[in-house]
C-alpha cells in the first residue's frame, strides 16, 4: 500500500493513496462537520460544511470529495472556516421548518447537533417557513419534507446500496424536493422494497418509521458503511 504524507493544521499525517481528505482528518482525530457525507456512499460535496483550506488552492475544497495528496498542507479550523460553517448551518435552519421541540428526531438529529458543534445559538437569517408536504402514503414510513435538508443521502443509499433508486431530486433551487418514483406518493412506488435504508440514512427527522412518532427516531447511519464492507470485503461481522 502506497503511503503519502500531508500536513493537517501543521501536523504531519500519513495515509494511504486514495484516502479522502475527510478520512485523513478523521484518522488524525480532527472533527470536521458533515451533513451530506455518509460513509459507504459516494460523496457529493453539497452541504459545504467540510470545506477546508488547501495551501496553493485559492478556492476552499470539500474534504469529502478531495483526495489527500502527498505534501498537501491543509487547514481545517481557521476562523474564516468556523464563521462560514456557522453561517451555513444558520442558512439550513432558515430554509426549512426545523422545529426541534416537536420533531421525531429531537435528540437524534444531525442538524440539531451541527448547530451545537458550530456554536449556533440563533439564525441571523429570516426563517423562510416554506410550505411543504408530508408524504405518509407508505405503510411503514413517513417523509416530512419540512425537515428535509436535501443532503440526498436517501437518494444515494437507495441507488447505491439497495439498488432500487426509488428516490431522486426534482425541481430546482429553493424548490428542490426529494421525490419518490416520478414524484408519486411513496406508497404508490412499486420499486420501493420497504427496506428502510433511506430512513436510517436520513440525518434529520424528514424520514422516519411510523412508530417512531411515539418513541422518537433511532437512525442507523452506519448501515451503508457496514454493508459496503460486507459486500466489498466479505466482512459480514465486525467485532
Amino acid at each position: 500500500m502506497e503511503l503519502i504524507q500531508l500536513w493537517l493544521n501543521d501536523q504531519a499525517v500519513t495515509v494511504s493513496v486514495g484516502t479522502s481528505l475527510l478520512a485523513a482528518c478523521r484518522a488524525a482525530g480532527l472533527t470536521l462537520p458533515t451533513l451530506c457525507h455518509l460513509d459507504g456512499l459516494t460523496p457529493v460535496g453539497a452541504c459545504r460544511l467540510c470545506l477546508v483550506e488547501i495551501a496553493g488552492c485559492s478556492r476552499l475544497q470539500p474534504a469529502c470529495t478531495t483526495a489527500a495528496a502527498d505534501g498537501q498542507r491543509v487547514h481545517t479550523h481557521t476562523q474564516e472556516l468556523l464563521d462560514l460553517r456557522r453561517m451555513a448551518v444558520e442558512l439550513f435552519f432558515a430554509e426549512g421548518n426545523h422545529i426541534c421541540a416537536i420533531c421525531v428526531a429531537n435528540g437524534n438529529c444531525e442538524l440539531q447537533s451541527m448547530a451545537v458543534l458550530v456554536g449556533m445559538d440563533h439564525s441571523r437569517f429570516p426563517a423562510q417557513a416554506p410550505q411543504r408536504d408530508v408524504d405518509a402514503s407508505h405503510p411503514r414510513f413517513t417523509l416530512d419534507h419540512h425537515r428535509c435538508i436535501l443532503c440526498t443521502r436517501c437518494v444515494r443509499v437507495c441507488d447505491q446500496i439497495e439498488g432500487a433508486h426509488v428516490w431522486d431530486v426534482a425541481y430546482r433551487g429553493e424548490h428542490c424536493k426529494v421525490i419518490a418514483g416520478l414524484d408519486q406518493p411513496w406508497g404508490a412506488v412499486a420499486a420501493c422494497t420497504d427496506c428502510g435504508k433511506c430512513v436510517d440514512a436520513c440525518p434529520t427527522g424528514a424520514l422516519f418509521r411510523k412508530e417512531e412518532g411515539l418513541t422518537g427516531k433511532q437512525p442507523d447511519p452506519a448501515g451503508p458503511a457496514r454493508l459496503r464492507l460486507a459486500r466489498d470485503q466479505g466482512r459480514w461481522w465486525i467485532p
Binding site: I99, C100, A101, D121, H122, S123, A127, A129, Q131, H146
Partner: peptide
C-alpha cells in the same frame, strides 16, 4: 436575553406562519 426556542426561533408559535 432571548430565553428558549420560541424567542430564538419562533418555535411552535411560528407554525402559524406556514398557514399563510
Amino acid at each position: 436575553i432571548a430565553l428558549g426556542d420560541c424567542a430564538v426561533t419562533t418555535n411552535v408559535p411560528g407554525l402559524r406562519n406556514l398557514l399563510r
